[in-house]
Each structure stands twice: as C-alpha cells, then as structure tokens.
Design a protein around this nucleic acid. Structure first.
Lengths: 213, 213
DNA sequence: GTCTATACCTGGATAGAC
DNA sequence: GTCTATCCAGGTATAGAC
C-alpha cells in the first residue's frame, strides 16, 4: 500500500532477488548438463543448497522456472552481439559478427545448449520469442546487406540462408561440442580451436558472399 | 538346438521381426516428436497399437529401445551418403555431398533430430559410435582433400572444420527446422527451400575452399 | 508370444508448522 | 521467508494367466 518502501520490504526484496538469481544460475547449469526433461527440481534445489519447496516458492512450476531461465538467456543473447554498422562495410561487420557469435558459444556454452534443446523440442516459449524478434531484426539486416550489394561491396545473397548458416556453424561449437571434440581428437576445446573456427567460417562466408571490401 | 529351423520357428522369427520393426519405426516418430526423456513406453505402445508389456518383451528397457533406434538410424545415415571419389575432383564431390546431406535432412528429419538430441545429451552410445567411425572415415577424406590440394584444384583447408561446418549447416534444416520456418516465414519447408539451401551452402563451401575445377 | 494387473519408484507440487 | 512431511500422478518394469 505505502508508496515508500520500508527497510523490511527492502530486505525482503533483496533476499528475493538473491535467491532468484541463485536458482536461475543453478538451473542453467543443471538444465544444460542433464537436459530439460531429465532435470528435476530436486537436483536444482540440491545444487543450490536449498530445500525443494523453496524452489517451488519462487517458481511455482518447473515450466515457469524453465521459462525464466530461457528469458534470461535470450536477453543476454541479444546484448552480447553487436548490430551491423552500415558505414563499416560487409567485411568488417561479418568478421566481427562471426567472432562474437563464436565467443558467445564459448563463454555461454550452457545458455547455448539450453536454447538449442528448447528449439529442437519446439518449446512454444522460444518459438514465440523468435517470431516476435525476427520480423524486426532480420528486415533491418536485410536492408543493410542490400545497401552493400548496391554499393558493389558484395554479391547478392539470401539473407535468410546466410544467417541460418552462420548461426548453425557458430552454435555447433557449443551445442554439439561433444562431436567437435571427437572430430578434433581433443578432450577439451581450447582458445586455438575457437580461433581456427572463426578463421574458417569467416573465410567461407566472405568468399561465399563475394565480399570485395 | 536343432541346426535346421522348423516351420514353427520360422513363424516365430517372422512375428518377432515384424513386431520389432513396428516398434522401432514407431519409436523413431515418438522420440523425435516428444523428445528422448519425455517419451514414455506407454506412448510408443499406444501408437504402435500394442500393449506396453509387449514393447518391454522385445526391448527390456527404454534405454535398450533407444539404443536400438539409434543404431538403426546411424546405419541408415552412413548408407545414404556417397564416399568421395578422387578422380571426380572437389567441385563435383563437395556439391554432391552437400546435396545428399540436405536430402537426408529432408527425408529423414526424425532420424536427424533423434541423433541431434542424443548428441546434445551426450548419450555415450552415440559418442562411442562416432569415435570409432571418425578415426577411419575422416582420415580417408583428409587424404583425398590433400590430393586435390596438391593437384592445385583447391586451397588447403582444415578438413575437420570443413566437415564440422558442412554438417552444421545441412543438419540445421532438419534439427532446427522450427527456427528455419520462422526465418523463412513459412508454415512448412518446401522443395524450393531445400534447393536454395543447397545452392547457398555449396556456393560458400566451394568459394571458401577456393575450388577451381 | 500376448496381455492384464500390479509392484515399485520417482517426480512435481503443496499444506502447514515454524 | 523457510522447510518438513506428504499427496498424488505417472513412469518403468515384471509376474503370471492365457
């Protein structure tokens, strides 16, 4: 009722925020490790050092919790990749975009896997999110690429298939890292492997798009 | 005990083979649709028109059943893609390889999804299979590509990253078809979409590898 | 080889004391 | 806000009649 928060309310709000963050971060790890369906609220509670009922206090159902985790991931996802900057031209932009996507795969492997699992399982929450996102985002990228094509800086390409390919190639190093490790015959992926991936993918994309500048 | 099968044994063997096939084909659909963990033996039994106990009679546990499904998929997987033919050169071989992989994604979408789900979940069965496969397969492809490089038909590339990229790009049209549909703003992927994908991916790969012939 | 009935267990979710 | 105890649904797997 009161407009001004009293100390007690602030304390409560603090505890709430702290616990929610703990639960979300723990969930992200467990979901990524165990898979969405195999994960139990008990596992999350144990790993967070909380009783199970406590988890259900903050997130009524497992579905609610998963959606909160997904929302957190998707927001972070967007913030960590730069938008295209027309003036800098295709070479610079595409190179940076690929580099940032690979870095994202590396530093947020769990997030990437959860996203992939939700997508393959066609979780409506994620599909709705993508639908609302793509209409705005993609049309802008499309316009930018058209400008570069008109300027003769690159050849005309299908923006849709270009992005589908870039996402597929960069995310595979996070989502299917088990396969990548087997291919490279390594127990763990290192800095050099990610750099090799960047170089290879960038080379293919730039050559495939006929980027001149 | 007897070396020669009697009619009754043959009949039994027939029934067994027929039921196993029915169960495996049904499982493939259900696993792909519901996800590995969410799928219950009850669902499979219902969709196959069999009592649940019957499913457990042929496949003692759900794990056994999943492994049988995976084995079936992986065998089919290998058979449907041609090996490289040195004499025909890189352009022809890579173009065909990509085309066949896309066709595979299209005609065996369920198989591809199950494989992807097992891989992302790091199912040891699949990892072991890949490990034993890659050592033999990849080294041969690597040798072939080296020959083409020596002949000046293409530039030197990392065979590992090349295959990782091709697999990622082609499989994404099966595994993450929900995302692709949103991107292309279509309710269903058609012939033309797969052909566009083939053209785009082939163009990138050939250009990226500097294929001349 | 088939199928009903059931044992046994695990998981999600909540009531209610603190 | 915390946590113990518990309910109940649904899952795997099998025993045993046919």
């Amino acid at each position: 009722m009161s407009e001004v928060k009293r100390p007690k309310d602030q304390l409560k709000a603090h505890i709430r925020a702290q616990n929610q963050t703990l639960i979300l971060e723990t969930s992200e790890r467990v979901f990524a490790r165990q898979g969405l369906a195999k994960t139990t609220t008990q596992m999350i509670a144990d790993e967070a050092g909380l009783p199970k009922a406590n988890v259900h206090y903050y997130y009524r159902s497992k579905k609610d919790l998963l959606e909160a985790v997904l929302e957190r991931i998707l927001r972070l996802w967007l913030d960590s990749v730069s938008e295209f900057n027309v003036e800098e031209g295709p070479r610079h932009n595409l190179t940076r975009y690929i580099s940032e996507k690979i870095d994202q795969s590396r530093t947020n492997k769990n997030a990437s896997k959860i996203f992939a699992m939700a997508l393959i399982g066609e979780e409506s929450f994620v599909l709705d999110y993508l639908r609302s996102l793509f209409v705005t985002e993609l049309s802008r990228e499309k316009a930018t690429i058209q400008i570069w094509v008109d300027q003769g800086l690159m050849q005309p390409v299908s923006t849709e298939h270009l992005f589908i390919s870039i996402w597929a190639m960069t995310q595979t190093y996070a989502d299917f890292d088990a396969q990548v490790k087997i291919m490279l015959q390594k127990d763990n992926l290192e800095e050099i492997d990610y750099e090799d991936a960047k170089l290879f993918i960038t080379r293919m994309v730039l050559a495939g798009c006929g980027v001149t500048e």
